[in-house]
């Protein structure tokens, strides 16, 4: 469990994180969303004791990170996959961390296998690693102590589809076993598949802290896709009934009328319908809609 209480961070006159409070609970995957500069990374760094809050506090299992007795066996963190000494092999990077955490050396081979890094790759110096390989190494480091809490900043950035699926399954499985998983990502489609719960940040403030489905439902516009052979007549009927109709996806996208209403209107006018699909907004659309007022506010403040 991660608890953040009225966390604030100022750099000079700029307030990057502003009175933030939320709780990340065990047993589910919590996504951390926000545009660039919203304060996500600073928040994660304060949770991990790397940056000192101006005020407020962040606790892991009820204690500040700096007071954890076995930090690597309590929390696995991936902040910046590129933060590996280029002259050191992946194996030695992990072996050093295992030593620091009092973790048996055999875990190194286990996490390498778990993240799909072969022994030959692990023996190579990290200088030549692709971003995807670095992400796998960062993930291996986070999993090394088999921690109850995982904190991952953009873990799928640069991964191929296999890697993305691996991360998704791994995180879902750890949450299912009662782990606390907190991850940020810019890939909304991926977040929609992985997260159960969302914490959304804008300009350092909390915009939402709710289950994924609720965030989407509360902020979405329902759109219905309808396809019919007599397209033009159908459009007139729907427009007359108050629907906003636009062309898209090989049919009409109707806003303001739900799917049953569209079907009944078509039947009442004797129109054949080939497809009728209610389409909830994707997280990406919801997120874009949520972030817009914040971006406007920022532009206003700058001028």
């Amino acid at each position: 469990m991660i608890e953040v209480h009225r966390l604030t961070k100022r750099f000079g006159t700029a307030t990057v994180v502003d009175g933030l409070s939320f709780t990340v609970r065990p047993g589910r995957v919590t996504g951390f969303l926000g545009p660039n500069g919203a304060g996500k990374s600073t928040t994660l760094r304060m949770i991990l004791g790397l940056d000192r809050p101006t005020s407020g506090r962040a606790l892991i299992g009820g204690r500040p990170y700096r007071e954890l007795t076995a930090p690597l066996r309590t929390v696995g963190a991936l902040l910046d996959a590129r933060a590996v000494h280029g002259g050191r092999s992946a194996y030695h990077h992990l072996a050093g961390l295992a030593a620091a955490g009092g973790i048996p050396r055999r875990r190194v081979a286990e996490v390498l296998r778990l993240t799909g890094l072969g022994p030959q790759t692990a023996a190579r110096r990290a200088k030549g690693f692709s971003l995807g390989m670095s992400q796998r190494l960062g993930l291996a480091a986070a999993l090394l102590g088999d921690p109850e809490v995982l904190i991952l900043d953009e873990p799928v950035n640069g991964l191929d589809t296999d890697g993305i699926r691996l991360v998704r399954e791994l995180l879902r499985e750890r949450a299912a076993r009662g782990g606390t998983v907190f991850l940020s990502s810019h890939l909304m489609s991926e977040m929609e598949l992985t997260a159960d719960h969302l914490v959304v940040l804008g300009n350092g403030r909390l915009l939402a802290d709710a289950p994924l489905a609720e965030v989407i439902a509360r902020n979405s516009r329902t759109v219905t896709l309808v396809r019919a052979p007599e397209a033009e007549r159908l459009r007139e009927v729907l427009a007359a009934a108050g629907g906003r109709v636009s062309a898209g996806d090989g049919g009409w996208l109707v806003e303001g009328l739900d799917a049953p209403t569209v079907g009944e209107l078509a039947a009442a006018h004797g129109l054949t319908v080939h497809e009728l699909t209610p389409r909830p907004s994707s997280l990406e659309e919801v997120y874009t809609a949520m972030a817009q007022p914040v971006a406007g506010q920022r532009a206003g403040a700058a001028s």
């Binding site: 760094r45 991990l48 790397l50 007071e67 954890l68 930090p71 929390v75 590996v84 961390l97």
Partner: peptide
Amino acid sequence: SGEYGSGTIATTLTAVPR
């Protein structure tokens, strides 16, 4: 300086927070 240059200082300080 190797730690600051490569960014591993953050990793080191999460492994040993004191």
